[in-house]
Simulated scan of single mutants.
Amino acid sequence: MTGLISVAGAAVVDSLENPKWLLVARRSAPPQFAGMWEFPGGKLEAGESFEDALHRELLEELGVTVRLGAEVEPQAGTGWPLNERAVMRVWFAELLDGEPRPLQDHDELRWVPLGNGDEASTLPWIPADLPIVQALLERVASGLLG
């Protein structure tokens, strides 16, 4: 296999224009990540764009359709490193249709407030997602979502 595995993630918020709440998902597997929180999403399939992968994954994992907003851009490179073999790109997303349910890979969903960032930043996140959480909270606090 050549190149890195590409993963698309969504920071699902209650509003792209004025986000107050973030939807987070708790992993049910694999064992080393079970019970930890993450951004919903998944690997790109062959020939699939990040945006198309997000729409597919959110429908499969949560049963929802979304409107995508701005990307939570990585500090450097072409994505947020997940490990030595995979990178993730994350977009803000707003629900269009459906009530989020943990259909695949998750055992719980939770809306957490974004106001002070305390609850969002103190959850037991998958370690690779922590820098993304911090960048997201900084963007929300500064109002730079567009």
Rank of each mutant, 00 (worst) to 15 (best):
L4I: 08
L4W: 03
I5W: 08
A10Q: 01
A11F: 03
V13Q: 09
V13I: 05
S15R: 02
L16K: 13
E17W: 04
K20Y: 01
W21V: 05
W21C: 05
L22V: 10
V24E: 04
A25P: 00
R26K: 15
R26H: 04
R26W: 04
R26T: 01
S28Q: 14
S28R: 15
A29W: 03
A29I: 05
P31S: 02
P31L: 01
F33T: 14
A34V: 06
A34G: 09
A34R: 14
G35S: 06
M36K: 15
F39N: 10
P40S: 02
G41P: 11
G41D: 00
G42S: 13
K43M: 15
L44F: 04
E45V: 08
E45K: 14
A46Q: 14
E48M: 05
E48D: 03
S49V: 09
S49I: 07
F50A: 01
F50L: 13
E51F: 02
E51H: 08
E51M: 06
H55C: 10
H55G: 02
H55W: 11
H55M: 07
H55F: 12
R56W: 07
R56L: 06
R56C: 10
E60N: 12
L62M: 02
V64G: 02
V64P: 03
V66H: 07
V66L: 06
G69H: 08
G69C: 01
A70H: 11
E73R: 15
G77A: 08
T78A: 10
W80V: 01
W80R: 12
L82M: 15
N83Y: 04
N83V: 07
N83T: 08
N83L: 04
E84M: 03
R85G: 05
V87T: 13
V87W: 08
R89S: 10
R89W: 07
W91S: 13
F92W: 12
F92S: 10
A93S: 02
L95V: 09
L96D: 13
L96T: 14
L96M: 12
G98K: 11
P100H: 06
R101Q: 15
L103C: 06
L103G: 07
H106S: 09
D107K: 01
E108D: 09
E108C: 11
L109K: 03
R110A: 15
R110M: 11
W111S: 05
W111I: 09
L114P: 12
L114V: 03
L114E: 08
G115R: 14
G117T: 06
G117M: 12
E119Q: 13
E119M: 12
S121M: 14
S121Q: 14
T122P: 04
L123A: 06
L123E: 00
W125A: 00
A128K: 02
D129L: 02
D129P: 05
I132S: 09
I132M: 12
L136C: 00
